[in-house]
Design a protein around this nucleic acid. Structure first.
Lengths: 259, 259
DNA sequence: CGGTTCATTGAACAGGCTCAACCTCAGTGG
DNA sequence: CCACTGAGGTTGAGCCTGTTCAATGAACCG
């Protein structure tokens, strides 16, 4: 595994640490400004803090699985998460990656429609569903905020459908890199060498490709000088405009140095 | 190479197609029970009726285009609609088909993120955005209803991503037919010979295929005795279980009525 | 009738997949 | 300190599904 991004957590042992965090979970939250909580007054935030459980999970742990009773909703406060659906023979489609500030469980009936799994050590605020719904009832502007977030997700899903249904492998990879970059920029993280917390196989299952094709295509972009691989598998975008054009598929050819 | 589909302009330029508000648009509405309006009291319904404009459009008319100012939201009351996004070279992805009872404009910022076009003569309630938002403010349960509808759309979008990214042509066609059937059943329309208001090309652009592949695959299903083509291009499902198995995969196909 | 549009079918092609080998690197234990 | 291991990543060769290109058929409509 690549080096785990260190997660801030109190130095004590587990139970004590959990209690400490629960006392002031929001006060030290680094993503409050970009998540649901940003619309809450101090009083409201306190009410919200009273129902949340600060949760830490290791790489690969499932937050919940498709078909589970949807008893909790979550807000990602550190690390990253992948969401996916499976076919019975094991084929997998990753429907999204979540990063700090993202809300998890917007589209939910009584059972989760997909699986959520930690891509790296992850920190979440867990909200019991009933209690959160009660709070949303009391704070309508919080519901509005979640509605707006759901709308944005829906627009993103439509972009992804266009990508999956109609883009070539090269366009998919280029779009994906730009998408990660925009996300990082939005949450005020470094956006030129971009961090890729997911492996090639996850990228493939997100883009509707195979790992081999992802690998080959990334190599081709590297060879063309559009990107460069940096330490930890991070990616530096060297030709922003070229990548943008490539993502939209305007350009049909640019020769590859044959050998 | 950019063979853009010719687009007739929206109703503003075609006053003939736009009827005046009916006296009692909701009283005669056949889909009230399955659309947003179902949660409104008679008084509230009256308020809603006061702001809507009953609109009729012909086949091929654009209801709005990607990038337009999002000034109106719509409720489909008759006919059907396709939503799509385009790439600069004309490649198209249809992100959804709408039928009576469906709401149009849930995922909207200040501009529409996709184009909506009538598949056949269509009837819509048009709501000026500001006024509808005002009403939603007054009737929170209506906002809740729209939120629930947006959630369902999001779940459907995730299913569609799985289909686009990971299913074969045969699985796509089978899934599509079953999806249409479920939709028809939900809105209490005939669900065995299913009506297909869209052409092969639209189906192809919805499933991430070409018209030829759609045609060939439908022919294969026909040859296998799973379906039969009826008058008007409608489809009779002759082997429900076979089709379900063909659509494949979804082991967790726990089906829930969406309302 | 011709004209237009859409659906179907066939033949050849190609983008991305499958299968398989090899490489890199971190972790582990001798 | 180095060999071994295992997981993930890269690269190659051949193949297959679905595309492209092209021709024909069917339905509709003035």
């Amino acid at each position: 595994m690549p080096a785990h991004a260190p997660l801030r957590r109190p130095a004590d042992d587990a139970p004590a640490a959990l209690d400490a965090v629960e006392c002031q979970p929001c006060a030290t939250c680094e993503v409050r400004a970009v998540s649901v909580c940003s619309v809450l007054s101090p009083d409201e935030l306190e009410r919200l803090a009273a129902i949340l459980v600060d949760t830490h999970l290791d790489t690969g742990s499932a937050i919940f699985s498709e078909g589970d009773d949807a008893v909790s909703l979550f807000n990602v406060t550190g690390g990253s998460v992948k969401l996916y659906k499976l076919l019975s023979d094991g084929r997998r489609q990753i429907t999204g990656f979540l990063f700090p500030g993202d809300f998890l469980g917007l589209a939910v009936r009584d059972r989760y429609g997909y699986t959520a799994e930690a891509l790296e050590p992850v920190r979440l605020c867990r909200f019991p569903r009933g209690k959160l719904e009660q709070l949303m009832h009391e704070f309508p502007h919080m519901k509005d905020r979640l509605f707006a977030m759901a709308s944005n997700e829906l627009l993103a899903a439509q972009d992804q459908m266009l990508l999956l249904g109609r883009k070539t492998a090269r366009e998919k990879i280029a779009s994906f890199l730009l998408q990660l970059q925009r996300g990082a920029k939005r949450r005020l993280q470094p956006d030129n060498p971009i961090r890729l917390p997911m492996g090639r196989n996850d990228i493939a299952d997100f883009l509707g490709l195979t790992t081999e094709t992802v690998s080959r295509t990334v190599s081709a972009l590297k060879r063309a000088g559009v990107i460069r691989l940096r330490e930890g598998g991070n990616v530096e975008i060297r030709d922003q405009e070229g990548l943008r054009i490539m993502a939209e598929g305007d350009v049909h050819s640019f020769e590859q140095p044959s050998h």
